[in-house]
């Protein structure tokens, strides 16, 4: 640990490389590879054809073996650079392989079979992006449906969260009434009741309300977030009460005070909560898995996990759809990271 301590004491302008600098950069570069590497690898792999995915060792970029249609053969044949027994080289198409011997034809002279040892041939490869990995799940599977379900759940839940939480935060920050402290404590106590503890009875309540196999059954239990109420309330406490009094003197109704004075002034905190809510709801997994059992209602997360759990995993589709699932969160990360990191540092919530 004394070595780590030395990091803190590094000063700009120190000459040369201290060993702690080396450790720092090893840690940072290693972190870069381990943190970003897997995602980059995923994106790269998602453009590979099933055949390329099955290869070992894998290539970093997506390659496919070139094919040629040869007269007299129904299917396109793979092309190889082959070294002929006489030492000359030629581009040949493989008809079939028997043991270590490959039977090949020259695409120009399809009649004549040439036998080549498989060690004497290498496939002709070109880089190709298998965009069908992306297009097919959307046309042949239900992924458009899943995407829509996820978007619907995320947007609706976030909007309701913002409205409902901000109303509660307004009441808890700008009104004096009996039981205010109790209500606040009750909301904070919810932090102690995570989903994993109440999923059995929650499931029965959602079923009793007729919300089983219903997207609203996914949305409603998530919207009264204690953290949301908490950050909004903390922010609203900083709005001077005189503003509220001024609005009352200006003949504003309480509802108007809420949405024309308090809400606009809480915009920064609302933005943070909105970002968090979008990420939370988009990523929700266990609860949708419990509530949604009909395929056409799956969210992306549920759909992905179910497909990836099947015996015959079609990795090329799974990888592509994983990338699609990642996109909104990555966008949030790129454009709104600053909001989130300051939000977390400020409130310690996730």
């Amino acid at each position: 640990m004394s070595r780590i301590a030395a990091f803190i004491f590094r000063r700009k302008g120190r000459n040369g490389w201290h060993w702690t600098d080396i450790v720092t950069w090893i840690w940072l570069v290693g972190g870069l590879l381990i943190m970003f590497g897997p995602a980059v690898w995923l994106v790269g792999s998602s453009f590979k054809s099933p055949a390329a995915l099955a290869e070992f060792p894998p290539t970093i970029l997506p390659y496919v073996t070139q094919k040629a249609t040869v007269e007299g053969y129904d299917k396109p044949l793979d092309l190889y650079d082959a070294t002929l027994p006489d030492g000359s080289k030629a581009v040949l198409a493989e008809v079939r392989r028997i043991g270590v011997i490959s039977q090949m034809v020259d695409p120009e002279k399809p009649g004549e079979i040439i036998k080549v040892n498989i060690s004497q041939r290498t496939p002709v490869r070109t880089m190709a992006f298998a965009t069908t990995n992306y297009t097919e799940p959307f046309t042949h599977f239900d992924f458009v449906r899943y995407l829509w379900n996820s978007v619907f759940v995320t947007v609706t839940a976030t909007l309701i969260t913002l409205v409902v939480n901000s109303m509660a935060a307004f009441a808890l920050s700008k009104y004096e009434f009996r039981g205010r402290t109790f209500a606040m404590l009750l909301i904070l106590a919810t932090l102690m009741v995570p989903l994993s503890v109440i999923m059995v009875p929650l499931y029965s309540i959602v079923s009793a309300l007729g919300l089983f196999n219903n997207l609203w059954g996914v949305i409603l239990p998530t919207v009264a977030t204690p953290t949301g109420v908490f950050i909004l309330r903390q922010y609203m406490l900083t709005i001077p009460d005189e503003l509220i009094d001024a609005a009352r003197m200006d003949k504003a109704s309480e509802w108007q005070i809420y949405w024309r004075i308090v809400l606009p002034l809480t915009a920064p905190a609302l933005a943070v909560l909105a970002i968090f809510s979008v990420v939370w709801r988009w990523n929700d997994f266990l609860w949708p898995l419990i509530v949604l059992s009909r395929k056409e209602l799956y969210t992306l997360q549920v759909g992905l996990s179910i497909y990836s759990g099947e015996l015959n995993v079609q990795w090329h589709f799974i990888l592509a759809m994983t990338v699609v699932t990642m996109i909104p969160v990555v966008l949030v990360f790129i454009f709104l990271q600053r909001f989130i990191t300051t939000g977390i540092a400020g409130t310690g919530l996730k």
Binding site: P240, E242, L243, D245, A246, A247, M249, I261, P264, L265
Partner: peptide, 12 residues
């Protein structure tokens, strides 16, 4: 009508 000590102008 009231004029407040902090003016209480709506900042937005």
């Amino acid at each position: 009508a009231m004029v407040f000590q902090s003016y209480a102008l709506y900042p937005h």
